[in-house]
Write a protein that binds this DNA or RNA. Structure first.
Lengths: 365, 365
DNA sequence: ACGCCAGATTGATGCGCTTCAATCAGGTCG
DNA sequence: CGACCTGATTGAAGCGCATCAATCTGGCGT
């Protein structure tokens, strides 16, 4: 009564085998699986028994070849180590699941070649659609997918206008919120610490920082420091360089483009060199990244709405899939939010509120 | 000269279209793609041009249907939010890539139903093999895959003996190292704080903690505390409960089964209640998890060799795939390592080293 | 008793590709 | 000059399934 352990050479039992075992035709087996309403109760039962007995597993390749469709969407993540990308995946998963789609993840591990490999893999698999969260300009890959008629939604990276849908965070506002918080809490000598200028969000954040500083007027200075990279070690180097300065040359507020970098700086500044954070220098990070590594002073950071972005991406993708020709590419921009912790606490402002320019809902784009 | 944007209804250009355009037969196009050596240089060029012109993308469904094989391995992760699982994925990715396999990831989001869905999805896709890192007993799913002849390697969860390959960390040693560190640094009133006893690693760690305590003899006590769960909030609750005790009832060393839980406890104890960590209570976590959330006192934790485990899993899978019938299931156990940080620092032991039992390489299993 | 209809079932066709035996072209050697 | 070999190319046979027109069955109305 046990499933005969057929040699798995070129595949286990097929639908035909099930049909034979159940004494029905191939088409009926297919109907049991795909259109149960069309099949009589008794027949269905016999077929299901046969499936069980034989240990039949339907062949998805044949299935999607014959039907020309496929229930998975492929998501390519530039860096799975980064919790922001995990949030994207999580949000996308939730949204995909509620529509019966399967979300397949692929990690490009910060390697464009791998990223392209995965795009092509999903392309060849004829997935229903794709999500891409890149770290570098991926125009070529996107164009290739679109040329093949594949739907793709970009996450956290603005597409070349009109080429595809995208979900972005208002990265300019990220920078703005960070700088504004420092200014509002009385800091006047700001520094923006960044690197990796080819990563779009990094550029955008800088614009926001500048906007906040400009808005604050003459009382606030901005210095820009190139960290040369975004790792903890780069942060250490920046921290050392800062700690070596005369006290009157030290910025009193740092906007750091990435949490990992920020934590590296704090470590060197606070723990190693004894420059007090936030007393002497306040630090704000820019992603609220859970994978930023441990820090002795909890980092105030601007939080990215990663989950919501992932969900929105699936929504856009679905719209594109169902609307077909009628679809118009859209770019959805979500707003970030400041999370205040110890490295740049809330505090009475140096200047009374009335004299500060009103906080705008968003910086101009 | 541009690719005619063929209606993508039931698929773009097919190999036959390419063959027609290049003036060769279908088989030749296939050979250009799969056995280039068999094709003349000039012919190959013409075919490749045609492919380019038409924007041909080969249909992976048809491909794997016809060939009966598939170059991807599917990896199902119980919880992608957990950095340990990310490490598995990363290691597996590295190993898979170096063998030309594509690693597809799926996030079960701590949901057994979803996990089963993904197992079935990969099963139906006839992947070359599967990796599974579960959080609950998944015997049923594993058995199903194996009954279908699919190769599957288990990560961080011991399989029912003889059912499949597995890569484990010596979780007993994890507990042992944590407790041992506390004992070696002079703590005598330990507590093991855990929950979720159905998660195998949790059980194993407890055994290790016990072993270390037993080994230390009469001078060291162990108390067990059930946190009721593993979230930060559960940690807060435990922290509050501890903080409410009389000082002489307070343990002086905590082994906490999970970093997230540990950080929650530290927060409540140290930051809220003012019980000094590590001075009054030292805390050791058990995963060195990057996603454990921020903590005011950096957590000493036992590090899991996640990347190495992922790599090893792919290696086992490959062995199973190539050896076929000759394959014997294996379980590889990797050793953890203590990472000392502020929450349980290195310190002169209360007892001189000579009087302490020698540190064994591993606890007995 | 006959025609008709709806629901259940069948069987044939094709999805796009790989594979492989068969064919073909062009040399080479005896 | 013909037999023979090598390398390139072809054509046909499936792979396992979805789909759908065609067929069958039994029940109903008249």
């Amino acid at each position: 009564m046990v499933a005969r352990p057929r040699a798995q050479g070129h595949g286990g039992p097929s639908m035909q085998d099930v049909a034979d075992a159940a004494g029905v035709s191939l088409g009926t087996v297919s109907n049991v699986l795909n259109h149960p309403a069309k099949v009589g109760a008794e027949t269905a039962r016999r077929v299901r028994d046969a499936i069980e007995q034989l240990g039949f597993v339907r062949n998805d390749a044949a299935r999607s070849l014959a039907s020309g469709s496929n229930s998975s969407v492929g998501m390519v993540l530039a860096d799975i180590e980064n919790s922001l990308f995990i949030d994207f995946a999580h949000g996308a998963q939730e949204a995909a699941r509620s529509t019966g789609l399967n979300l397949l993840l692929a990690n490009a591990a910060c390697d464009m070649t791998l990223q392209d490999n995965y795009l092509d893999l999903f392309d060849e698999s004829r997935v229903t659609g794709m999500l891409l969260a890149p770290m570098e300009d991926s125009t070529a890959g996107i164009a290739r997918m679109r040329a093949h008629g594949r739907q793709i939604v970009l996450l956290n990276y603005a597409p070349k206008p009109g080429t595809c849908c995208a979900v972005l965070v208002n990265n300019e506002h990220v920078g703005y919120l960070a700088a504004r918080h420092l200014i509002d809490t009385g800091r006047t000598r700001l520094a923006y610490i960044a690197a990796h200028e080819d990563y779009q969000p990094v550029r955008d954040r800088r614009r926001g920082v500048r906007a906040a500083v400009d808005e604050a007027g003459a009382g606030v200075d901005l210095e820009e420091i190139d960290s040369g990279g975004l790792t903890t070690e780069h942060g250490h180097a920046v921290g050392r360089a800062l700690a070596a300065r005369d006290v009157d040359q030290l910025p009193d507020g740092l906007v750091v483009v990435t949490d990992e970098l920020a934590n590296g700086i704090i470590h060197e500044l606070h723990t190693v060199a004894g420059v007090q954070v936030p007393k002497q220098v306040a630090v704000v990070g820019c992603e609220n990244n859970r994978a930023a590594g441990p820090a002795a002073v909890l980092l105030t950071a601007v939080d990215m709405p990663g989950r919501a972005m992932g969900q929105e991406a699936i929504r856009l993708l679905l719209d594109e899939v169902v609307s077909g020709k009628a679809h118009r590419h859209a770019t959805v921009v979500l707003e970030p939010e400041l999370v205040v912790r110890a490295s740049a606490p809330r505090r009475a402002a140096a200047v009374p509120p009335a004299q500060r320019p009103a906080l705008r809902a968003r910086p101009a784009r």
